[in-house]
Design a protein around this nucleic acid. Structure first.
Lengths: 339, 339
DNA sequence: TCCCCCTACTAAAACCGATTAGTAGAATTT
DNA sequence: AAATTCTACTAATCGGTTTTAGTAGGGGGA
């Protein structure tokens, strides 16, 4: 199945076989500029390395060079949301491109485990740590994390002392609303999330901005707060359609909400998008692409945030005492059939 | 933001402060049995370590002990499916419990990157490698992987020479079918996946077994093959309901298929579960829990497979030349409202 | 009372496998 | 023959772990 580990060959073994010193081997294999090793010797060394299937021991190198080329990635719940994959993938991709590797721990919202995880990563001398949240919120990372460059991903700290990257909820809300207004709708219902959430707060501001830009009045009876689930979408959409002067378009805070809203509209015999246009938020492929009609929605930039976090971390590691930057990433609109 | 890295304190610094030798510090901090360090000295050492905020350098330790406590996790597409999170989480959880850390690389179905990833992990002296696939299939991992214990996760090798863990598709199919038969349905429609897939193949066998166990005839006009999408579910469910003697229950190969089937049934005015009972497969929370009525479905044991893979890897690493075991994990039935 | 041995502590030094500064010998040029 | 290059080597180093060695103090025997 797998061959029992013999002692794996060292640089010394290669040197012996090639009849040179370890120094020479090191120079050749890392092709160090200006180390003047003759072509012939180089070839001999390389051949020996191949013969022995030599693989440099990253640990030994690391000890000497003090560069782990590893980045810690700490997250609460990696599986609880389908976004997690995108974030991890984006981060992983950027890391790979930069020759770094990701060490991932998910702590299951246990503060103790989080601290332990950070500790373990510091022992392994990671070059930086990313703290990722699965929904946009404020957090307070373990203090020890300050020992290395740190980036908060999809979250931020109240005190603004940590670098962070979050979605631009305001422009996302603005965009979703504007799409509907642009189609001639003047009464746009908004099934938002719990207004305590940064996401809900930002999107509402965007919603108002979009109305303002077109000099339309803000009618707060059109705005309701759900909890992001399909059933709250169903309930609130039903309520909105029963209003005396019901909205002709619906902006839903999540795609699941939109899924519930679809049900409510269909039950009332309203067609989408002819009678009521719908825009979602999140772009959960699984839902958005498979609803009938397919749901137009605003996407959260998870992949991009993952990439940005890693790249920024790498930048930071090269600076001396950078000021923490609070980065915001745009939420693109994904056009499908529901508008 | 983060304080510029001073040279971090070494075991020598702690020793100096405590007025002992590095040996003593090492003995105390690792509390080595029978090394006879007086209680007083121990306390002094620990206090010094705390004072200096000493953190052992895992790299140096690793170099000496040759135990990296790291496990490589290689996967094609981590984000393309919502399952990925569960698998990673399960693996991560088991790894953490065993004091191991996961190094994750997703290769984006690029064989070259996969080989490079394995190479990099071997350089870092991982204690084993897990190759995870996001859907059940046959694979052939890079040969180099043999240098360490390896487990295939949600995939297997044709030659059977690698340890692997996959879902028990047969019993899953059996279970789904039996649930419907148990409710008195005798004609159970089956919207399967492409029959070339191990998943489809296994579930069909399970479907037949379940019929056989109740001595019901197998009618192949009740079995159709879709592609797992909602639209194929919609189309095929519509076809099945138009049969002369239509099924009173539907077993769908994926929850998305079921989602499409719901649409088709509702359009025809059929109620779920009164007129037609539906069972899905995959247990995609996002869909299954939010459909109306909520979808009863069979869950793929992603979390469990992740755990098993890590645990088995750790076992393997302790054995000498284990024979590759092909493990299969049960798919539990999740009861909701559609039956 | 003196000497020796044993136990309880602690220290010195080798080692893990690389990198890299400093250096030496051979070949070539002047 | 001396001065430069070329080429490759010796040895120190990174920060721990672990084996071996050593010392001080207490107890027992003569």
């Amino acid at each position: 199945m797998w061959t029992r580990k013999r002692r794996s060959p060292t640089i010394g073994d290669v040197a012996r076989l090639a009849g040179v010193s370890p120094t020479t081997v090191s120079f050749v294999l890392n092709d160090v500029a200006g180390s003047g090793i003759s072509e012939a010797t180089q070839e001999r060394v390389r051949a020996s390395a191949r013969r022995l299937r030599y693989r440099p021991n990253a640990t030994a190198r690391l000890l000497r060079t003090d560069r782990s080329h590893a980045i810690g990635f700490v997250t609460g719940e990696i599986a609880s949301t389908p976004f997690a994959g995108d974030v991890v993938e984006g981060a992983q991709e950027a890391a790979w491109e930069a020759g770094k590797i990701l060490m991932i721990v998910n702590t299951g919202k246990n503060q103790r485990i989080e601290e332990a995880a950070v500790g373990m990563m510091l022992e392994r001398r990671v070059e930086g740590i990313i703290h990722a949240s699965m929904y946009h919120r404020a957090v307070e990372p373990p203090a020890d994390s300050r020992e290395v460059p740190t980036v908060l991903l999809n979250c931020y700290s109240e005190d603004g002392l940590w670098a962070s990257v979050v979605p631009d909820e305001v422009s996302g809300g603005h965009r979703a609303t504007e799409v509907l207004l642009g189609k001639g709708h003047e009464r746009v219902g908004f099934i938002n999330l719990d207004p305590i959430l940064p996401a809900a707060n930002g999107r509402l501001r965007g919603y108002k901005q979009a109305l303002g830009a077109r000099e339309l009045p803000f009618d707060d009876s059109l705005v309701t707060n759900g909890d992001g689930t399909a059933s709250s979408g169903y309930r609130l959409a039903a309520e909105l359609t029963r209003m005396p002067n019901p909205p002709t378009a619906l902006f839903c805070g999540t795609d699941q909400t939109a899924m519930g809203a679809y049900e409510a509209l269909k039950e009332r015999g309203l067609r989408i998008p002819e009678d009521v246009a719908v825009v979602g938020f999140d772009n959960q492929e699984l839902i958005a692409a498979h609803l009938r009609p397919a749901l137009s929605t605003v996407a959260l930039p998870h992949h991009e945030m993952g990439r940005w976090a890693v790249n920024h971390l790498i930048d930071q590691a090269e600076r001396d005492n950078p000021t923490p930057v609070q980065h915001v990433i745009d939420c693109p609109y994904i056009e499908r059939e529901s508008v």
